[in-house]
Amino acid sequence: MATLVHRKTDWTGIVLAVVLTLVIVFPLIVVGTWAFTNVWRYPSVIPQEFGLRFWYQTLARADVWTSITTSLTLATTVTGISALICLPAAYAFARMDFPGRDILFFSFLAGHAFPKFGLLVAIAGIFLQLNLIGTFWGVVLIQLVGTLLFMIWIPVAAFQSVDRRMEEAARDVGAGPFRVFWSITLPQAGPTIAAAVLLSFVGTFYETEGAWLIGAPQVRTLPVLMISFINNQPVIQYGAVLSVLLWVPSFIALMFARRVVNSGSFARGFGG
């Protein structure tokens, strides 16, 4: 049957693929190429000289290494604290009924529905009085706000989709409420929550507005450093090398996400 049907050329699909390639892959290739280029002068289509010169130069700089450490420490700290605060809150939202629940829940979304910069400036004003400007914990606080959406909404969906009967069955065989949460609810919601944690880690790693406004110049994350490179030194390769470095967490995140999505547990987390 299938052999008789002549496959029609799927023009929509082809156009879509081409556009996606141009928009997403092409810039990545250009940046990637720049990062490994020693000399590339107009009007040549390909670089005159490939090489790792700018990698050596970039990685030889102390401020690059400091900012990599800063970024990793920040992202880990923010994600950790966010998980500690948000996961129990998400569980409460998913499973308990308390006054103001809906309004509070919605406010997390509302916080993201407006331009963030104004909010950030207002917060910066407060931080100035609290002497938090230019400190590590100031940046942690501001970035924490940015993770709330992912770390509440996604886990709420995950917890809500855990079968109540499974939890009751665990109570039935003798597990107390905390044991049920630890041994049943958390593992059931686990893959989806892992995705939220990952998103929040990557999001924090790339976050620039808050980090720049509150942290600079004392606390400089990798993206903030990259921006200052681009602004101060018109050498494309520096920026290119740094952005290739910045891809690393994305790749790790994507690999992990693929595993989670493939296992089907992600879809199950969303009630799929």
Binding site: D163, R165, M166, E168, A169, A170, G190
Partner: peptide, 9 residues
Amino acid sequence: FQSHALWTH
């Protein structure tokens, strides 16, 4: 339970 409620993990 009707829906067996076994722990799938």
